[in-house]
Structure formats: C-alpha cells, structure tokens
Design a protein around this nucleic acid. Structure first.
Lengths: 250, 250
DNA sequence: AAGTGGTCTAGACCACCAT
DNA sequence: TGGTGGTCTAGACCACTTA
C-alpha cells in the first residue's frame, strides 16, 4: 500500500468478498449511503477496495439476496428502502381467505411512555425498567378489524418520537423508522401461538371474550442483528390466515 | 454442433446458466441422480453442457441456495437428502419456550384410504372424490403431546403405501417419501390460524374442549412446484411456539 | 453516446478430501 | 497425489437507462 487507497486485503481474514461485504455493510450502517440512494458503481467500488469487479459483484450478490441492496440494470445499485410493497411482501403475512394480501389501514389507539417490563426488555436487549415507548394500533382490512398490535421501542433510540408523528405518517411504520431515525429493518423473527382473547381486546376485533386468536410476537432487527422493535399482535383469523412460505426462489 | 454433445445453447432462451439450471433440475426430477448421490463434477458438467465452468457454478449456486443441492468442498456436489436435522431446520417450526427446537416423537393414530374432500383435492391439485390416503399422527416432545396432524396423500402417487411402512419407518416422513417414492420435498407453504379445539382432538393434546390451538395447514411441494402432501396440524401452544425467521443469511 | 448492471469465458491458485 | 469445490482475476460482450 504505497498510494492512499484502502485495500480490503489489508484488514480482517476470510474470503476477500466477505471482507468487501462487511465494509459495505459498515458503510450502510454508518449512513454513508441512505435508503433509495445509489451506492457507487461496481467498478468504482472495485477501485476503492482494490479488488476485481467480480469480487465486488459477489459481495453485492449476497447483500441483494438479503434484500439490503437492490440492483437495477442500467441504473445502479440502491439501498433498499421500505415501501408499502416491500412491507407487504416481506414483513406482512396476513392474507384473506382467497389468499390475497391486502394493505391494512392502521388506527392509532394509544401512544404512551412507560418502563420496560422484563419480557419487553429481553426482546429489545435493554435493561429492565428502561424507558420505552408503547404504541397500540388497530389494523383494518377492507374496513374489518383484524389485528391489534402493541409496539415497544427503546425511548433512547427513538428520542423525540411523538404521537403526532406516529399518527400522521404517510407510509409504513418501517418507513418512519428509516426516514426519521435512520434505522433500516432488514430482518424479523416471529413467534406464534394461539391464545384466548382477553376482555380488553375482544371488542376491538369484534370477537367474544375468550375467542381463539393468533398471537404474533415479532422482534425486528437492523444491521448487525441489533433489535429495534418488539411488537406483539393479536390477529383475528376467522376470515384471514397467516401465510408462511419456505424457499420460494427459482 | 458437429460432435455428439448436447449444448445448452441449442435449446430454450434466456441466460445460459438458467438453461443449465433447468437441465439439472430435469435430471434431478427424472431421478438421474438420487438423494445423497454426488452429481458429476463441475468440470464434467461444463463439458456435458458445452459451457464454461463459471456458468455451471452459477446454476449450481442457485440450486444450493434453494437447498436442492449441497456442496462439499473437496468431495463433490450432492443431491440434498432429507435427514432429521434438515427436517428440523427447514420444515419444523415448533420450539419450546426457551427457544430450543427438539425432535418430536410420532405416534400413528390412524391410517385409512378415503376420498378427497374439496379442500383436500384443491390443495393436492387432484379431482374432488379422488382416492387419497389419510394418516393421523400424534407428535410428542419430551413425552408431552403437542401436535396432532392429519396428512393427505394422492393414493395414485403413493401406490402401495401401507400402515406398516408408515409406522415402522426409521427417519422422517419426508425421508420415506424420498426413499420409497422418489419424491423430494423442496418447498412448503403454510397457512396458520387460531381455532378452538374440538372434542375429538382435545383429549389427545390434554386440553379442555374449545381451548385455543394453532392450526397449521401445509402444502409440501417437489420439483416444478408439484404438490405432494397436504397436512393439517393442531398445535398446543401452551408451552411451545411456532417460530418463523425472515432473511437470516449472512 | 456513455455509464450501469448482467452474462459468459478462461485461467490461475487455494483449501479440502480421498487414496 | 489427483480430484473436488472455493476464490479471485481480467476481459469481452450484452441489455438497459439516461441524457
């Protein structure tokens, strides 16, 4: 290294393309390129990291497979942004009985600041009793209420978030996280069980008390598997189902 | 083409590697290479299809991403076979409250031949009233009954399958499909809802009648998205959850 | 026309496994 | 030691977008 460039070969270990990938991920986490922006072209990145273009391509291949980047032939490679369609496709699994996925309309029921109970703290990776924001939403599909969700956010991370921002937003919640707080959700983990609905929630979903509903506990992660949101939902599966596909590609 | 080789360039359209991929998939579907067998080396396949080794690699890359093939450095590339671990990892989503996945022990409750009801026929892509095999199993985890499942199979496809074969098998059900019927399950689609358990099933899961249980309706597919099995399960989620991960790679 | 990603090739070398 | 997959390179050409 006699010139001023940073070579990917100089740092870390393992395959070169993995090192390039982690340099790219780091730049993304640092906000060097923002959602919907193009990253530099493959040839520029090859120069910057002092590797061949094929090696850059292999790193980008993996990042696109993880849906962190999106390629567009002739235009460039872009940082994946949360759109309604992306949300629907990757993070929303409720479909109606015909198998059709429709975009739900949210209604803000509650916005408050509180302290993290143990199960919330565990999932968010914060201290028990730490300040959190709790939001409750009702989701309707074609007018019918199908889901209540309770969202928990680390108040330190989401400093300044208020009720108005939440209720008057144009797109999805993950778009809000991205645009206001630079937190790009790239992965979720969900745990499902069947429970009897309580008296507080039953009327919201127009169900009898103790009716069976699907409980979905979701943790959403950003880069480096850092938890960002914990969400616990109750879904009325009388006329809707939760759909899960395994290995669809090809 | 003056010699006797078959060139991938001679048939179909689109990228070469996609054509190579579909030639490979066809050979797999035809049973040219059986589960656990090695397919020819990349250089041999390159000769056979008259393409460069890089093009073969790209085709195999996609097939390994879909978990249809498995590479082993220094040994070769193998047709993915169903093993207990693969089943656990890709097709079984029930974990206990600590998040630990344990292998369930099946007990055969019923094995009978019947006619396909409409919802079964639809999912299996066969005629209503066609002959089907219906199997009911009880799954226990560490002794506790957690899941009842009703499996429906096209009797024409599973010609000769009998109760004994089903109950005295060593591995998973998908291993049985693979070894006896050459049907390799490579993809599943599941639909989940919460339902009240009926009086017939409640005692099996040691629950009160009308207790909420998770209903999982799964269709399992082989190559070319051909449906092979329809399975409807009821899961006691009192001490277990259904876990779903999105985008884990990297 | 210039720039981007997409495909395909050919060859080198490495890491790993069997013998 | 020879064969396998794994990585990396360099270059050619194609398809698509933008100006």
């Amino acid at each position: 290294m006699t010139d001023g460039t940073i070579s990917a070969a100089d740092i870390g270990h393992g395959p070169l393309y993995k090192r390039v990938k982690s340099l790219l991920t780091q730049s993304l986490a640092d906000g060097e390129w923002k959602p919907n922006e193009a990253i530099p072209s493959e040839s520029r990145l090859a120069e910057r990291f002092d590797v061949s273009i094929g090696t850059v391509r292999k790193a980008i291949d993996e990042l696109t497979a993880e849906r962190i980047l999106v390629r567009q032939q002739g235009r460039g490679t872009f940082v994946a942004a949360h759109t309604q369609n992306r949300f629907l496709y990757h993070f929303y699994h409720v479909v109606d009985e015909d198998g059709i996925k429709r975009f739900p309309t949210p209604e803000l029921l509650q916005f408050r600041r509180t302290r993290a109970e143990p199960h919330v703290a565990t999932r968010l990776g914060i201290e028990k009793g730490a300040r959190v924001i709790h939001v409750r939403n009702l989701l309707r599909i074609e007018g019918a209420p199908v889901e209540v969700n309770d969202i928990y956010l680390d108040a330190e991370v989401f400093e300044g978030l208020d009720r108005d921002t939440f209720s008057n937003r144009p797109g999805t919640i993950y778009q809000l996280y991205q645009e206001r707080f630079r937190l790009n959700i790239i992965r979720t983990m969900e745990q499902l069980r069947a429970v009897a609905i309580g008296e507080a929630e039953a009327p919201l979903l127009q169900l009898e008390q103790n009716a069976p509903v699907l409980q979905v506990a979701r943790v959403a992660y950003t880069y480096h598997s850092q938890p960002v949101e914990y969400r616990c939902s109750l879904v009325n599966t009388t006329h809707h189902v939760y759909q899960s596909d395994q290995e669809v590609r090809g």
